[in-house]
Design a protein around this nucleic acid. Structure first.
Length: 346
DNA sequence: CCAAATGATTATAC
DNA sequence: GTATAATCATTTGG
């Protein structure tokens, strides 16, 4: 039972002294007059190293100083260097350059596009204006909301930048602290500049992960802001009576095939002073809502059919009886109302 | 104030 | 790319 410590001790003592890889000058140094005294020294030093964590800071500081000044220190240091040299290779293999994170790039691009991370003014408002113009058919009336949006965006940008700066500062502080610590430690323990570099890059990676979270949440905030202010649903205006009439007229006179071609849509858009996309929306909504409840639209359908019939009759002046009020309609998936005017499209 | 109407967006399919 | 169906957000009319 009590053989273990003794064996350990003897192994350490003899092993160290007789180590084949021990530097030359150390062997020379130890191989002086009294070998026993030297062995005792090494044992003491090792003992001190092993128990250094048990001591208070002041004590440890004192001991460290003592160790630093010890005449054996350079020799031991060299041993440590050698051990390090052997073990550090395995670490170096695992250390690789990582490619730029696509997620981070996406976030960066978005922040830049939204004008959060870009130049102070111009980019953001221009993008917002473009988006607003694209989604809003009415135009010019949204300057108040627009400025509100810009103000909120500026707020987000300010928060983002102050946070970013805070993180950067903390990162720098921490980095210099660690570097100082490592430099300080490099006096007693072999630390190559490369290792310090590696440590710094690890720290930077950790901090950039935190930065990514910041960017993520900022992106989310911008998205919410966008949906809040730039969503066209939020500032919907009904079309004027005239436009609705034109659209309905077309719809009910092409009831068997209510799919206006691109040219027809453009013409309708021009006549109604709305965009082609709005015409498409209108027809999409109309088709589905008509199909869903034909009964509800019956009256409307008859009215428009009758009106177009009258218009056609008026247009072709007198003597033309091309349009009968009871034209049958059998084509297409849309059942017809009582009245059906002419339909010729495509 | 409520429900219907309505324009816009989204998800899904072809 | 478009069409459809469901849904959202707002306006409108009682």
């Amino acid at each position: 039972m009590d053989e273990q410590p003794r064996l350990m001790h003897s192994h350490t003592g003899v092993g160290m002294a007789g180590h084949p890889g021990l530097p030359q000058h150390m062997q020379e140094g130890t191989g002086g007059t009294d070998g026993d005294g030297r062995k005792q020294d090494i044992g003491d030093i090792l003992q001190q190293i092993m128990t250094i964590t048990d001591q208070s800071l002041d004590e440890a500081q004192a001991r460290k100083h003592a160790l630093n000044c010890h005449r054996m220190k350079p020799a031991l240091f060299n041993v440590l260097c050698e051990i390090k040299e052997k073990t550090v290779l395995s670490i170096r293999g695992a250390q690789e350059e990582e490619p730029p994170d696509p997620q981070l790039m996406r976030l960066d691009n978005m922040l830049l596009a939204e004008g959060v991370s870009g130049p102070e003014k111009g980019g953001g408002s221009a993008a917002a204006a473009a988006a607003a113009a694209a989604s809003g058919g009415a135009g010019a009336d949204n300057s108040a909301e627009h400025s509100d949006y810009r103000a909120k965006l500026t707020q987000i940008r300010q928060i983002y930048h102050t946070e970013l700066e805070k993180y950067e500062q903390a990162c720098n502080e921490f980095t210099t602290h660690v570097m100082n610590l490592l430099r300080e430690q490099s006096r007693t323990r072999p630390i190559s500049p490369k290792e310090i570099e590696r440590m710094v890059s690890i720290i930077h990676r950790k901090f950039s992960a935190i930065q990514m979270q910041l960017k993520q949440s900022t992106c989310e905030a911008v998205m919410i802001l966008r949906s809040r202010f730039l969503d066209a649903r939020r500032k919907r205006r009904n079309f004027n009576k005239q436009a609705t009439e034109i659209l309905n007229e077309y719809f009910y006179s092409h009831l068997s095939n209510p799919y206006p071609s691109e040219e027809a849509k453009e013409e309708l858009a021009k006549k109604c002073a709305i965009t082609v996309a709005q015409v498409s929306n209108w027809f999409g909504n109309k088709r589905i809502r008509y199909k869903k409840n034909i009964g509800k639209f019956q009256e409307e359908a008859n009215m428009y059919a009758a009106r177009t019939a009258v218009n056609a009759a008026n247009a072709s002046s007198h003597g033309s009886q091309a349009n009968s009020p009871s034209t049958p309609n059998s084509a297409g998936g849309y059942p017809s109302p009582c009245y059906q005017s002419d339909r010729r499209i495509q």
